[in-house]
Write a protein that binds this DNA or RNA. Structure first.
Lengths: 137, 137, 137, 137
DNA sequence: GTGGTCTAGACCACC
DNA sequence: GTGGTCTAGACCACG
């Protein structure tokens, strides 16, 4: 099961799938060249419409995460292929960071603590990557 | 700045506001009796429609988080729950940071760059705060 | 009437719309800030489904040609905002040029003639731009 | 190289081939009795499925453009139409160039860059031709 | 009124 | 079998 959707979260279903596939790709549990479940299979597993599943994959292709080949299926692309300008990429990330900063402020977590937390999560992320990278049947 | 909305996250704007006010209340950064910005002011600050701001407040009132007193404004009600423990608050932020890290990976932004970007955005946030008035006494 | 679709060409309808809006924007007959017909109106005019019209607009937004504001409509963005890397942009254009070169070869048009033809069409394009730029009610 | 396909244009690949063979026949670059590459070879050259190549040839045969002789291959039939006049051929190319110019505009590629890119792709094309065998005797 | 999402079901192009 | 497109019609978020 590649993803699990929550119909009540308010987040569009197709975006939930996009985020989860991205997470799987980033953490290494999906690897370059791996085939993703077909649109029909994914739709059945998640009990969503085929169009919704297709839309998620279309979005992933537009972002350069996967490659879809007519009649063959969808495959994870090698990382390092983001077609966006560096400035645009930084800007997008900055927006997300701003949201986190506001949230930290609301949760009364200091700048120092937030910075430390980021370092900690980064380390955890790299460790997870290492595990997925070495053990594969 | 009581909230920060992301128009492209897929999460309805009014829900983003609701969640952030709740987070602020839960962590103690907003306290019983505190006044919230008026619908008009909030709409202006966030550059959203007044209807949207009103809807967020309506939702918060329906959930018993705030209380609107005619002609006086909106105020935070006693919530009955003790402020969240620090560990819980960190955990919430960690989840958001994990999402940012995944995004950074796909945007091909290195750990170093991400850390630098956080520092930069933190500084910008503090500067904005300084301009908009001083903190709680 | 912003576009006209040909159902028999084999080219997806939503792509035909995308191309025509791009052409209108490039030639100056649509200008920065101009509102495009609403999804519903466009769908009615072209006698296509509302979803198809929406998809065309979504594609145009993804390419940075228009901006869509929830509840307000779609508006032409200022040019000079392509979010793609220069290398990616050149590559895409190169692919299209390759197709033209093959076609020229089939039509037995020499390299020199093709180059001259490009210069001629570029001049014609700039002239059309000039006309649209100056005369507007 | 008898054709060049664009997988992302939205036009079915088999139709792209049909159109290009027709163009070559109309302009005289393919002449009555000329042999076309076998389905197998064409599929390899264009990196498409053999079924797709076969379909293109089937379509061309149905339209009476080519003739397949069992065991010998495919050959261009007499088409009865005189080769197109140069003006007509230029006009066809001009349409394609106009589309490229519009695309270049949105990709923010200047006239100078576009012209240079054409020269570069022309050179690459000639080089490929040289490698793949000499021209018609 | 605007655009966004989802479902259902159909047909096509391609492997 | 695969993904891509289109239609029809519904509901939601937003101005």
């Amino acid at each position: 099961m590649i993803a699990h959707v929550n119909f009540k979260s308010g987040v569009p279903v197709y975006l939930q799938i996009v985020q989860q596939v991205k997470a799987a790709a980033a953490s290494g549990s999906l690897r370059t060249g791996d085939a993703l479940p077909s649109v029909r299979v994914l739709a059945e597993e998640l009990r969503i419409n085929r169009n919704t599943a297709a839309r998620a994959y279309a979005e992933l292709e537009a972002e350069g995460v996967i490659e879809t080949r007519q009649g063959a299926g969808c495959f994870l692309k090698a990382n390092g292929t983001s077609p966006l300008r560096k400035a645009v990429r930084s800007e997008r990330l900055a927006e997300e960071l701003d949201a986190v900063i506001i949230q930290a402020h609301h949760l009364q977590i200091s700048d120092t603590e937030l910075t430390a937390l980021l370092a900690e999560r980064l380390e955890a992320f790299r460790e997870r990557q290492g595990l997925n990278g070495s053990s594969r049947p």
